[in-house]
């Protein structure tokens, strides 16, 4: 089975990898690029643990082929903190105890960041519906929603 050479940008850095055409973007991120912060929880697009953005659009990396990544801009959890400085969402998640096991956390952070880019002042319902595709089994979502709303408030204040 011949592999395809892919050049793309991940978290601002140009990267290259060889993709089996059947490998998902998630497989390539984790196995080829060793970016294991993006998680696999279901491989059916139902849990959101593999959330990344591709050219700014939030997607499940398990529902995209690695070969489709050619010439894209991909952002993962590993690129969220800039120069060692945590993103406000990351800080608020720690402060609010918005994670227990932490497995769904990278996907939720990436999804929440995409929400705030689109809507800097979401209400609780908007946050809940935006994150409906990110399953969390530990927290009951309460502290996650609070952390996102609090980060949004801080970012609005800072802007």
């Amino acid at each position: 089975m011949s592999k395809i050479h892919i050049t793309t940008k991940v978290n601002g850095e140009e990267v290259e990898f060889l993709a089996d055409p059947r490998d998902t973007l998630l497989d390539c991120l984790r196995d080829q690029l060793e970016l294991t912060g993006t998680k696999e929880g279901c491989s059916t697009g139902d849990c959101g643990a593999c959330s990344v953005t591709v050219d700014g659009t939030l997607v499940c990396s398990c529902l995209m082929l690695g070969v489709e990544a050619q010439d894209k801009q991909i952002e993962t959890i590993e690129g969220m903190a800039e120069d060692g400085e945590l993103h406000p969402l990351q800080r608020k998640f720690i402060e609010h105890a918005a994670l227990q096991c932490g497995f769904c956390t990278p996907g939720i952070l990436v999804a929440a960041k995409a929400l705030l880019a689109k809507n800097p002042d979401p209400n609780e319902t908007e946050v809940r519906y935006w994150l409906a595709g990110n399953l969390c089994r530990c927290t009951g979502y309460d502290k996650i929603i609070r952390a996102v709303m609090d980060a949004a408030a801080e970012m609005r204040g800072a802007a």
């Binding site: 984790r30 970016l35 294991t36 912060g37 993006t38 998680k39 696999e40 993962t76 959890i77 590993e78 969220m80 903190a81 945590l86 990351q90 800080r91 998640f93 720690i94 994670l99 932490g102 497995f103 956390t105 990278p106 952070l109």
Partner: peptide
Amino acid sequence: GLDKVTGRARYGAD
């Protein structure tokens, strides 16, 4: 906390 919000924490499949 830091490891778990940055993707650095290593889980079973990592």
